[in-house]
Design a binder for these strands. Structure first.
Lengths: 203, 203
DNA sequence: GTCTATAGATAGATAGAC
DNA sequence: GTCTATCTATCTATAGAC
């Protein structure tokens, strides 16, 4: 089929996808306008439909890609050759790097899944079971306190993500200038590592 | 003015407000439909405009009330007569109670402020400065580790809120049935108290 | 592939009867 | 205060020229 294989998407298509990610992350699905996406990449509104048929299909394309981004670092937790807390450290490092590169991703993700829980059906959730086993093993062998694994994962994610989620609110309430807040985000990883050790190490 | 003072709002008005809170928390501002709110309380769509003029004014009414709900427990942190960690405990207890009663509040709040940061201008942020002072005093007197206060408050909120924010995602990935997830939420407060002590107590 | 023009549907808001 | 009917604006999506 000529040179139109999936490894050679057109430049226009890529521009639209990039613009769509920006607008959807900023305004959400319902609040986003196809015209805003067209403006963002300097393209014509009709082109968006030419390439992606509908607003919903374009949104799904962005959403599922971002969902992968949000979860893919978690596989590193499964490498049981390495010390548990070192694995946690590596995960947090990667996760914070991802969040710094995608600061608006968490809001978009949580909002979308809250408003369209049916999207979850199409997503792979197989690593949940594996992660449970991993945490269970560490508990059985006495390296971390005994606690439902959900508390562990929501703690890592909660501690890491909250400063990004709460950025506008927190910087307003605490009157923190943008550069200082950025510095706080960059040093957050170190604090989260400390916190996870402190709360999980047996006494 | 007859009996129309602010302490005697009409029954209809209250019904609309309650329905609006449900729909706005579920669908967000952009996604919500005036018709959906009317259906939710069995009222006529035109009545919503009669009582609140516009969708935006109705939304602001809900939003600012919910914002107060989200932050009002934090004042208990300021009562310096009580031991710091006891205050933290009391706050977490109240906060978790509030979250269990308003499980959809966090998504709505973070989404709205992300999409309409200008709403923050109308909100009182005066307790931020006071909270900073309180944390600073505890650090100076060696009762907690030295750390930027923002890390503390985002940790409490992050640990408390994340299981609510991530509920659909987490229960899907970890395959947790609704009743078990509910139990996890109810025991979360105890874990957050433990975690805050562990991460803040000086070694 | 890319554009202009427009169809088609929907939602917020209002007019006016009761 | 509450209803029905309708106006008006807006947005997604498509038709059709180039």
């Amino acid at each position: 089929m000529d040179n139109n294989n999936k490894y050679e998407e057109t430049d226009t298509e890529q521009k639209i996808l990039k613009a769509a990610a920006i607008v959807f992350e900023r305004d959400g699905f319902a609040g986003a306008r196809m015209q805003a996406i067209a403006d963002e990449c300097g393209m014509n509104k009709a082109l968006l439909h030419y390439y992606f048929r509908s607003k919903e299909l374009l949104f799904r394309r962005i959403f599922f890609a971002k969902f992968q981004t949000f979860f893919k670092d978690m596989v590193s937790l499964a490498d049981t050759e390495i010390d548990f807390f070192l694995r946690i450290d590596m995960f947090i490092d990667n996760y914070m790097r991802m969040l710094l590169a995608n600061p608006d991703l968490p809001v978009m993700l949580f909002t979308t899944i809250h408003q369209n829980p049916e999207f979850l059906q199409q997503l792979d959730g197989s690593f949940g079971l594996k992660m449970r086993e991993i945490f269970q093993k560490e508990m059985d062998e006495g390296r971390i306190i005994k606690i439902n694994p959900l508390h562990i994962i929501t703690s890592i994610v909660g501690l890491s993500v909250m400063p990004f989620l709460a950025r506008p609110m927190a910087s307003h309430v605490f009157k923190i200038p943008a550069p200082e807040y950025q510095k706080l985000l960059e040093e957050r990883g170190a604090f989260v590592k400390h916190a996870m050790r402190a709360m999980l190490k047996p006494i």
